[in-house]
Design a protein around this nucleic acid. Structure first.
Lengths: 215, 215
DNA sequence: TCGTACGAGATGGTATACAAGTCCAACGGA
DNA sequence: TCCGTTGGACTTGTATACCATCTCGTACGA
């Protein structure tokens, strides 16, 4: 029922995001098509879409490779995310409903509970990452600006890749969870300036955590 | 030499931007291919690219149509542009070279000269629009953040369409040119806060001008 | 009048073929 | 030995043909 191109797109995308495809690995249309048992056409479409999102690089007549990112890229991305997500929460705050606030609070609670569990649990990090995505995604959804959502979407991909490698320090994790709580509190108070500034701090802190503070 | 798909992409894009394609007009792959004397393959690719940029809407099995925008869309777009371009000039200000500043000043002078010419001249409005694009583009270039440039790029398309219909009032035009001058002055002074706030005001003013101030 | 079935028109995908571009490696000359 | 050239393998970009499937309007039938 689903379009094959979309399925392929998602497959390749998660493969990249999971790190199953090594850095700068070539993505040959025919190979992919063969291994997926389909023709080149939908593969091409999927690759173009991924290229538009910046997950793969394509050069004319040379095909597609998994994109690479350096510290400068990451810095750019977190900078922009901090600005756009701060704007999102600024828009969201005055129009968030009580039930939406409650939803965010529930995520906070779940993340806090998960943070306390055994550090060696295999579900812990993915679970936290997933709930984190939900938290940020919900705020963007509340902001009710489809284009803002689309812009952030394109920026979020790359950091996800890193998330699988970098593990937050306990202190950073705690700070992150406190930020979430504070954001919700600010929204509850209807203070969009407060909310947006915490959000910006939240993401810039994450940037330094990921960049290792060494640049 | 150039890829046909790219050529087609640009053709359709400028057709949309020039308003040569009426609103919500259907874009049938085979018709386009036939009229351009090429096959469906590159047309498909071009349409997908345009869809990724938001210039056309595609729905599964129903094909592509020229995208439509309402006031809400425009409001969103100008909001985001005001934020992102303000950020761009904030980044650009501390690192702009003297020659880059001079380049911007030249554009200011050219626009001012052009604004004084006969209002009935056919080149006046397109000339101003073109130089305006150059001005904003140069600042983004100076900011040296490729992703920021890419994000703004995707937002700039739609307002261009409107530019061809809406004509600035003389007062608005004058304000716009003064803003440009003030932005350059702020950059020259190395004051990125000043610069970014003028930029934000500049774009929000344009928004109200285009939306007619009636919402 | 309402529902349904039908058919025209398009898209999504497959298969195949080929020109042109890229890359690499072997070859040959300085 | 080193470097430039050549040639071919490998891909991409495009064309073409074909068909299943989907959409949508319409005419038919209950």
């Amino acid at each position: 029922m689903a379009k094959i191109a979309t399925t392929v797109y998602e497959q390749i995308r998660t493969s990249i995001l999971n790190g199953e495809l090594s850095n700068a690995e070539r993505l040959v249309e025919e190979d992919l098509a063969l291994s997926l048992g389909i023709s080149r056409t939908p593969v091409r479409e999927a690759l173009r879409r991924l290229a538009a999102e910046g997950l793969v690089d394509v050069s004319p007549n040379r095909g597609a490779r998994v994109a690479e990112w350096d510290d400068h890229d990451l810095r750019e991305i977190f900078d922009l995310r901090s600005i756009l997500e701060a704007h999102a929460v600024e828009l969201a705050t005055p129009i968030a409903s009580a039930s939406e606030i409650e939803y965010l609070e529930n995520i906070c609670a779940e993340m806090e509970a998960l943070a306390l569990t055994d550090a060696s649990s295999p579900d812990r990090i993915p679970g936290l990452a997933e709930k984190n995505r939900k938290f940020h995604g919900k705020i963007i959804e509340i902001s009710n600006s489809s284009r803002l959502g689309a812009l952030i979407e394109t920026l979020v991909h790359v950091p996800i890749v890193m998330q699988t490698y970098k593990v937050y320090s306990p202190a950073a994790l705690e700070r992150s969870l406190r930020h979430h709580r504070e954001i919700v509190n600010a929204m509850k108070a209807g203070d969009e300036v407060w909310a947006s500034n915490v959000m910006r701090a939240h993401i810039l802190a994450a940037r330094e955590e990921i960049l290792g503070g060494n640049n």
